[in-house]
């Protein structure tokens, strides 16, 4: 290409509104929907994460408390007898939202090596908090894709095996505690950043960003701490119960008729 044509190329055609309208058909609405869905699915998962931590940490109160929570979801109190399949149902919904969220988020991942490198270099030189956080979000998200899938698959196929002994055995005797440990960090960090991101993405809060950042850190710290104590409790229980692994938990003074 000669430099003359290069110069000529800079001359744009007249831009009439009619020409633009004719050239571009009405844009479809899916980008908007997908963007909202990405945020909503993330919000749902983050809220679920908070609730989930609430449920599993009841082990810190007592075995009975956790047992009661686990059975609650089988809905015996409503339907007369427990339906573990209901738990599978909940898990299936969470899994579906999770897959959706992952798919939506994947669209934002670097699409090729060039993009990956460009971002990595950018993050490296910019020393910018929110940019580095996204990198963390990306990697924790990537990890969650595997960790969560394993966990959810277990819950989906063995919904009845949720209980103080059953869960503790899975953690310790089933050798899943390293997975849960990694999952804990990944999920709480990812969730904390995600909630922060939601706020700056949709909200009008340039002025209160510093406060928001502290809230994010407090969120992650609190839930990681709670998660660690909870996991320790399961490990402790799992070790004590290792020789009787597989034994189902029955509450001490159960009045439940089996």
């Amino acid at each position: 290409m000669s430099s003359l044509t290069e110069i000529r190329d800079e001359t744009p055609p007249p831009l009439t509104d009619a020409a633009v309208r004719a050239a571009a058909p009405r844009r479809n609405r899916w980008p908007a929907r997908l963007d909202v869905l990405q945020s909503l699915s993330g919000l749902f998962l983050a809220l679920f994460l908070i609730a989930h931590m609430g449920f599993v940490s009841t082990i810190l109160i007592s075995h009975e408390a956790f047992y009661a929570v686990a059975r609650f979801f089988e809905a015996a109190w409503l339907l007369g007898k427990p339906y573990p399949a209901l738990v599978s149902g909940v898990v299936a919904v969470v899994l579906a939202v999770f897959v959706l969220h992952a798919w939506l988020a994947l669209r934002k991942f670097p699409g090729n090596l060039r993009a990956y490198r460009a971002f990595a270099e950018h993050r490296e030189r910019l020393h910018h908090g929110d940019t580095s956080l996204w990198w963390l979000q990306l990697w924790t998200g990537f990890a969650l894709f595997f960790l969560t899938t394993v966990h959810l698959y277990g819950m989906l196929t063995q919904p009845a095996l949720i209980g103080p002994f059953e869960s503790a055995d899975r953690v310790w005797t089933g050798n899943l505690w390293p997975l849960y440990l990694a999952l804990l960090f990944a999920a709480e960090i990812h969730g904390g950043i995600g909630l922060y991101r939601l706020a700056v993405k949709w909200g009008d809060l340039a002025a209160s960003r510093a406060r928001l950042r502290r809230a994010r850190q407090a969120f992650s710290a609190f839930f990681i701490a709670l998660g660690l104590v909870t996991l320790a409790a399961y490990i402790d229980l799992g070790r004590a119960h290792a020789d009787r692994a597989g034994e189902r938990y029955t509450p001490p003074a159960t009045t439940e008729a089996r």
């Binding site: 110069i7 800079e10 001359t11 744009p12 055609p13 007249p14 831009l15």
Partner: peptide, 9 residues
Amino acid sequence: AVAEGIAVH
């Protein structure tokens, strides 16, 4: 000038 399609080199 952009709207009127004036080339700026």
